[in-house]
């Protein structure tokens, strides 16, 4: 048997032949192209298909601007709330060993397992007119349901695990020896956190914040149940898309949708860049 035939035989035994490789890569490309890329392209084609004038006109509608403002307001409250929680929970779970830790992790994951519509429903049942809290809220003139506070609370519930889930594996991987060194050298807990832990996890934290933000701005089901769909008042961007689409204003609906699609693309681009950067940083850490 010649040398080349031998190498070919070995290569075939520990890997796939070139033909198989090409077929598998093509199947993956076609599947992802049809299932993921095509819907994304449709958003931009439909949004800009009738010219930039129609596009800008759709975005400049007062209802669209109101929806954009509300969406930003909701994200500005919900994301920092879950950021503080995510950091506290990650510190608790990765720096300490205690009983019931895995049970606590399961509880943090709960909102992932709840349908968005059910998430909205639980707040309708909690704050609605015929709930235990309802009459008291009404007497004190506090409007939660079908108003901004309800939308914010439902969004916080939906995005609850995102940042904690992004931080926990990262901080677990890094261990606590650096923090222990800082504390034994006399640094306070806060100083240890801000000067040792935070620089180590900042990129993972940033991606967690971005993902949480994309979900907070894009949440549909839960917000749809608690918002009451009052135009110009309790309509977020995703709800506004639904209204425009059902009104047969498809071009306007896709124009608004393109804003959220661009936000998604930015989120993914930052993630890809961070991963490229991470790879270098991890290699550097291994060297010394």
């Amino acid at each position: 048997m010649s040398e080349t035939a031998q190498t070919r035989k070995v290569r075939r035994a520990i890997g796939e032949g070139p033909a198989t490789r090409i077929v598998l890569i093509m199947v993956a490309l076609v599947f992802l192209g049809l299932m993921l890329i095509a819907p994304l392209l449709v958003v931009f084609v439909e949004a800009f298909g009738r010219g930039i004038g129609v596009y800008l006109q759709a975005l400049a509608l007062p209802d669209t601007m109101a929806a954009l403002q509300l969406t930003l307001l909701v994200a500005v409250i919900a994301v920092p709330a879950n950021l503080i929680f995510g950091v506290a929970a990650a510190w608790l779970i990765t720096k300490f060993d205690f009983k019931g830790k895995s049970f606590l992790l399961t509880l943090i994951d709960l909102p992932f397992a709840v349908s968005p519509v059910v998430s909205g429903l639980i707040f309708v049942l909690l704050f609605g007119a015929n709930s235990a809290l309802g009459p008291w809220l009404e007497d004190n003139n506090i409007q939660i349901l079908y108003a901004v506070p309800g939308i914010v609370i439902a969004t916080i519930f939906i995005t609850f695990p995102f940042i904690a889930r992004e931080l926990i594996p990262l901080m677990e991987q890094q261990g606590s020896s650096e923090e222990e060194a800082a504390v034994s050298l006399g640094a306070s807990g806060w100083r240890t956190f801000f000067q040792v832990t935070l620089p180590n996890v900042k990129w993972g934290l940033l991606y967690g914040v971005l993902l949480c933000n994309a979900r907070a701005m894009g949440e549909f089901g839960a917000v749809s149940v608690v918002s009451g769909h009052i135009r110009g008042l309790t309509n977020t961007l995703p709800l506004h898309i639904e209204i425009l689409y059902n009104d047969n204003k498809a071009a306007a609906a896709f124009a608004v949708a393109s804003l959220l699609a661009m936000l998604a693309l930015v989120t993914l681009a930052v993630k890809t860049l961070l991963e490229a950067r991470f790879a270098g940083e991890i290699a550097a850490q291994r060297r010394h």
Binding site: I25, A28, L29, L32, L36, I37, A38, P39, L40, V42, V43, E46, P116, L211, A214, R215, M217, G218, E219, F220, G221, L237, P238, L239, I241, E242, Y245, A250, A253, F254, A257, L260, A261, L263, A264, L265, T267, L268, A269, K271, T272, A276
Partner: peptide, 29 residues
């Protein structure tokens, strides 16, 4: 293969794209 990193990034698209946007895009397709 060329474009592998882009493909890898595209996999996360459904996590980042709001469901209402995906919904009207799929309905149109």
């Amino acid at each position: 293969f060329p474009g592998r990193r882009w493909l890898d990034a595209a996999v996360d698209l459904p996590f980042a794209l709001p469901t209402a946007v995906a919904g009207i895009a799929l309905a149109t397709l």
